[in-house]
Write a protein that binds this DNA or RNA. Structure first.
Lengths: 340, 340
DNA sequence: TCAAATATTCAAAGCGCTTTGGATTTTACA
DNA sequence: TGTAAAATCCAAAGCGCTTTGAATATTTGA
């Protein structure tokens, strides 16, 4: 059933039916009700494409996932998407995801803009030197960056957590517990969040006159096996770390496994502090967390990003303010005083 | 730049330009080249929506993610999506994801069909008694089920792994190692894959005259904390299991953590065998797996589902054959002979 | 050389919706 | 009661593409 048929059924014009359905004021309440009733009765659904052709807006938000990097972002991605998707559903937006080989990314963004498929885009996993931002600005398509590129991060909309402050605090927390040799298992340095975290970590060490030792600072994919192998490597050093700070619970789990393998206990022999995105599959609501962490829900971030972008799209002129979220320091049992 | 403008530029009709671009034979090679050149020069991109309105096909595949269940599927989802998305990109399809509260699922599927937004759908996480299948059949929209509903699974297209056989083998493997008391940490029984796995497990025990003990069989969300708490629970029993079979590496990680906490070693004190979806964030390519597992890549499953559904869509008449994949039994170091 | 066959191109209709500008009906007020 | 204002409703154009049916140009073969 299409508009024309529905209008015929009702003995009204398409105009009136369309207006009734879309809440325009130029239609009497009585007719509106009659139309709405008929619409549900005949299960009328406007063709999305016709609607979009006519209005020029697609009520769709795009997410471009670079293929090469996806293994890095995949576990975070799903929780983020779940959050954003919920918001989209509430506002009647659709979510378009494209998995694109990194080499074709630019072409793809251009095509996205030209083909009119989306009203806005969310940019994932920004690098410090991020070419996508300039491109999207040039294409004049509304977008939001989850994270930020290098400073200054203005001229575009973003939502980020305060990675630097967060890791500074985590490091200070360990220092306060008496740790002096703290290893850092970070994500790929190219990623903006990773470099910000490193800066926070380094700063805390500096402020406490602790030597910065690059041989206990690593950048890897944030997956369990990397946490494991780096920890094994760290435990072979002459000067073993007494604490390990990681950028992801997945890494932390690898660390834990390695410690266990070597007969060490987390929290007493070696402390672990991690950043925790509160991935849904690692948490049970209400459960007391094992890992001491700086935490911030990536699902909530997804929700907020969705909200911000939609509000931006709706009032093209006024871009909402970007947001910087603080993380929460949660003390679990994976950390403790430095062994003497 | 739209078709009309491009045609004007070239001094040709829209018809000819459209045909040249879409590879129709009624256009001379010389013109085609000229058109293509101009198209790239002016970065012409057909409006997707206009195209779809005109053709009635959307070159888009939908994934409906039920909100309540998403926490269950989220980690698997992202790897699946990544695989499917790659295939879609290769074939020029788009991927539409909707996160929908479970209560609105049916409405949403109907809307999907009526609004013409997608050419086909992928159904995730089928239950044993799955109402969505009948609904989609009635709506006459091509779809593919990742997994299966209850027997007989015909009349629709699906792709599944042989869950029953897989868990039968895993159980037999443990029995061959001398284990007699084998716990099962399974997913929610409602999910079809979980009940099939249970059946396989039970059958293997029966065939070896081992008592089935419901008090060591659990159905939970397949997340780390559940693996942990169930294992703690199991270790309090008088008759502790010597082996634990789990439906997910995430559960297995929880098991491992619990064993460690209790000073037990996996592989010697208690054996762990798990099903392994080869989630990208738990594996490093080339690495020797720690967990003994029945494994099958969910990313590859995503790829294959994408391929099957697209080929189905392209030739509406002939539905491709459904596929049942065997899993691979990979022996790691988390399993060993039963302690005597 | 000319008609028939073939190769190329085009004008126009249509996909299903929104929206403009105008027509018609109802209401309000003198 | 009559008229201006407000409330309803409608016909038709247009969004950018594909595709039908027809027109024109080029080849072919006798």
């Amino acid at each position: 059933m299409n508009l024309k048929q529905l209008a015929q059924q009702l003995g009204l014009s398409q105009t009136t039916v369309s207006r009734a359905l879309n809440g325009y004021p130029e239609v009497s309440e009585r007719t509106r009700r009659r139309v709405q009733q008929a619409a549900t009765e005949f299960a009328y659904m406007p063709s999305r494409h016709a609607q979009l052709l006519a209005t020029g807006r697609s009520r769709t938000i795009g997410h471009v996932v670079p293929l090469l990097r996806h293994s890095m972002m995949t576990p975070y991605f799903s929780d983020f998407i779940a959050g954003a998707g919920e918001v989209y559903a509430e506002y009647g937006f659709d979510m378009l995801i494209s998995v694109v080989p990194e080499a074709e990314e630019e072409t793809h963004y251009r095509a996205m803009a030209a083909s009119n498929k989306v009203d806005g885009l969310i940019v994932h996993a920004p690098k410090t030197d991020e070419s996508r931002i300039g491109l999207l600005q040039a294409l004049e398509i509304p977008f939001l960056v989850h994270g930020r590129a290098g400073n200054p991060a203005d001229g575009y909309l973003w939502m980020d957590i305060d990675n630097k402050r967060s890791f500074e605090r985590a490091t200070e927390f360990l220092i306060d517990l008496g740790h002096r040799r703290i290893a850092l298992l970070n994500g790929i340095e190219e990623m903006n969040f990773a470099s910000r975290r490193r800066i926070g970590y380094v700063e805390a060490l500096k402020n406490n006159n602790i030597e910065i030792d690059p041989s206990i600072m690593f950048c890897d994919d944030m997956i369990e096996p990397c946490g494991y192998s780096r920890t094994r490597q760290l435990l072979e050093l002459d000067e073993k770390p007494t604490a390990i700070l990681t950028s992801s619970v997945l890494l932390a789990m690898g660390v834990l496994r390695a410690l266990t393998d070597c007969g060490l206990r987390a929290g007493s022999d070696v402390s672990i502090v991690t950043h925790d995105d509160q991935l849904s599959f690692l948490h049970k609501p209400g459960e007391i967390p094992f890992f001491t962490s700086t935490r911030s829900s990536i699902n909530k971030a997804g929700r907020r990003c969705g909200e911000l972008l939609i509000s931006y799209i709706k009032s093209r002129e006024s871009r909402p303010d970007s947001e910087l979220w603080e993380t929460e320091l949660v003390v679990g049992s994976s950390s403790g005083p430095a062994p003497s």
